[in-house]
Nucleic acid binder design. Sequence first.
DNA 1: CCTACCGATCGGTAGG
DNA 2: CCTACCGATCGGTAGG
Lengths: 205, 205
Amino acid sequence: MSSTPRKEQIIETAARLFSQRGYHATSMRDLARELDLKGASLYSHISGKEEILWLILERAARQFLDAIEPIAASDMPPLEKLRAAIRSHVRVVTGDLAAATVYFHEWKALQGERRAQFLEWRRRYEHLLQGIVEEGMAAGVLDPHADPKFATLLILSVVNWLYQWYRPEGPLSPDEIAERFTALILDGLGARVGEETADAAYQTA
Amino acid sequence: MSSTPRKEQIIETAARLFSQRGYHATSMRDLARELDLKGASLYSHISGKEEILWLILERAARQFLDAIEPIAASDMPPLEKLRAAIRSHVRVVTGDLAAATVYFHEWKALQGERRAQFLEWRRRYEHLLQGIVEEGMAAGVLDPHADPKFATLLILSVVNWLYQWYRPEGPLSPDEIAERFTALILDGLGARVGEETADAAYQTA
DNA sequence: CCTACCGATCGGTAGG
DNA sequence: CCTACCGATCGGTAGG
């Protein structure tokens, strides 16, 4: 029925298996069986097991970066940038939950150059997000006295952990989840007109 | 020098290796080499590879539960309960980062009964935390209109993701990190005296 | 895409 | 705690 090229089927199926059992716990024969092939037949489409992992991780990393780069470079107001960045992150995670799970769990199985490339992409992503956070602080949308590194880590905590609990059949759509995340972050890290409220919360704590 | 029993050394070293490379990527011979033993010698102290993983995960799960259970059962005010729960969670994670990493990443390698037991402990922990959140809402410390399940997930996101970025040599102590988490959560999920501020933030978003 | 096969390594046991 | 060894399985290749 499907005209999806074999290589695509291999990558998709591998993403599912790697996300369920982990990269090292999935054998090439497991993967082949899922595609009604013999193990050796996989090697006419891909060069080896690590290449499959790499193709999954490379795509995921590009999706994250392709989404945030135009947002970071745009002239939207800082608040809208932050909202758009959170929404696009949530869309990437929820759009391919298996790939996102592999992205967060299995990159350590990469060796040498690929591992370095992956980590560089991840660093670039986090740096772009931190830039948006800093713009928000400079514009007074986020608390200018907060630590931008810590604030970025908190945003990443919330949007990254999503892969652990998101289920497509759940009650909230991806955009609704992103909306709630944004509201929480604006509230928790936001600058207030009356600064007393924020100060009071810190002191009560 | 050290009089640590061999079994303890095995568990500690395994936690380090499993956290660095993953359970399936660490062989019994890797583990033995790290302890200046031959692979076969491990089996006079433990019954098999999965038992080592189980001992790491069981301890970690018990640490989380032993910390939150007395807090949940106490008669502290709701706000103090939440603060204490977050602080104890952060202490467990930072107190043994390797074990925490294995706790979050490698439990899927457990089979059958052990896997079920682990998941039950994790559910119990999350349920106790949600109870504390609900008490806070009932008492007006947290926004009574928020969704308690979602609020609990957000707290778990922030405190769980810590294992991904915490480094003992970093600028913040575990208790300082917990303090900042609590402040953020009280701010982001907190009830305000003037409700307009929160409503305004939701509508701007 | 298959059969047939490779050397390496896996978790684990026997027997001291 | 060691040497010696087990069957099973691993990723991958040869050759069609």
